[in-house]
């Protein structure tokens, strides 16, 4: 497979990269782990005139903790996220999601920032990061801004990122109190994207009742979507199996579910309920262990 001609740039600072984006505008595409853009270029479905490779820009990868927030560089690979001791101990849901992305090659090359910027409607990170209330830090020549992951992605392969912007970091606030998170996914047998993925972060009050929850779904709609009716139904309830099941049954409520080759909209709505139930159950049991 031979890509269309393009000019390749290898900046060594964020400022230099931003300058290139400024200069080439719509013509430029940022290259991170090469797992989304390069296949599209090989198929000539993407034909950018300029490719700005971020791999030589220092400071864009790694996982650190700072003031109650876990900061993950955009260029951190899925494998690095999943194997980070910080993530494994404090955000186990992220570690388990990282291990289910694509295959070994994708996990070793693909990056968390690249995945978010690509915004595939069946990707794993958007659901997990929405459930964790994460934000991204975005730089442009005009300065930096933070955007919630849920607001970053606006549709299939579409984000609020402007042509001159670079996604620098993913910022995950460390939850406080009695909480637990879990990610449950039915992978597509070919692509390993999620036919459905349900990420649940559940908080319990001292009496063991649900004080708050964030549940996000991927794979069933045009973008990552919160299962608001489930969150509402769980609020204030003792999370016993029956309560979880009845709340999870509302997973797809209010969501415009997409049918695809894997099944009807009705089937995918059912999957959303089943996988939400599984995720919430495990999130609750993790919370109870705390």
């Amino acid at each position: 497979m031979y890509a269309a001609p393009f000019e390749y740039h290898l900046p060594t600072t964020v400022a230099e990269a931003l300058g290139l984006l400024e200069k080439f505008g719509d013509e430029a595409k940022l290259l991170s782990g090469s797992q989304s853009l390069v296949p599209l270029m090989k198929l000539r479905l993407a034909t950018p005139g300029h490719v700005v490779d971020l791999r030589k820009v220092p400071g864009l990868s790694g996982v650190t903790e700072s003031g109650g927030t876990v900061v993950i560089g955009a260029m951190t690979t899925h494998y690095e996220v999943g194997s980070s001791p910080l993530v494994r101990t404090k955000l186990p849901m992220m570690a388990e999601a990282a291990g289910q992305i694509g295959d070994t090659q994708v996990r070793n090359l693909g990056t968390i920032g690249g995945s978010l910027a690509h915004a595939d409607p069946s990707a794993d990170w958007p659901a997990v990061l929405a459930a964790l209330d994460a934000s991204v830090r975005i730089a442009s020549s005009r300065g930096e801004r933070n955007v919630k992951v849920e607001e970053l992605i606006v549709g299939p392969l579409t984000t609020v990122l402007a042509p001159g912007e670079i996604l620098l970091q993913v910022r995950v606030p460390l939850p406080a109190g009695r909480y637990g998170g879990a990610y449950e996914k039915l992978p597509h047998p070919a692509s390993r994207f999620a036919i459905v993925g349900a990420a649940a972060e559940v908080f319990l009050d001292p009496g063991g009742k649900v004080s708050n929850s964030r549940i996000a779904l991927t794979g069933i709609a045009s973008k990552v979507t919160r299962a608001g009716y489930v969150e509402q139904a769980l609020l204030g309830k003792a999370p016993d199996p029956a309560a979880i099941k009845s709340a999870a049954a509302r997973a797809a409520q209010g969501i415009e579910v997409r049918a695809d080759l894997t099944g009807s909209a009705e089937y995918k709505a059912n999957l959303a309920a089943v996988y939400t139930e599984r995720a919430v159950k495990r999130a609750v049991s993790r919370a109870l262990e705390r």
Binding site: P189, G263, N270
Partner: peptide
């Protein structure tokens, strides 16, 4: 025999 077909 995909999950979708069996579920239907």
């Amino acid at each position: 025999l995909t999950p979708g077909r069996i579920w239907e």
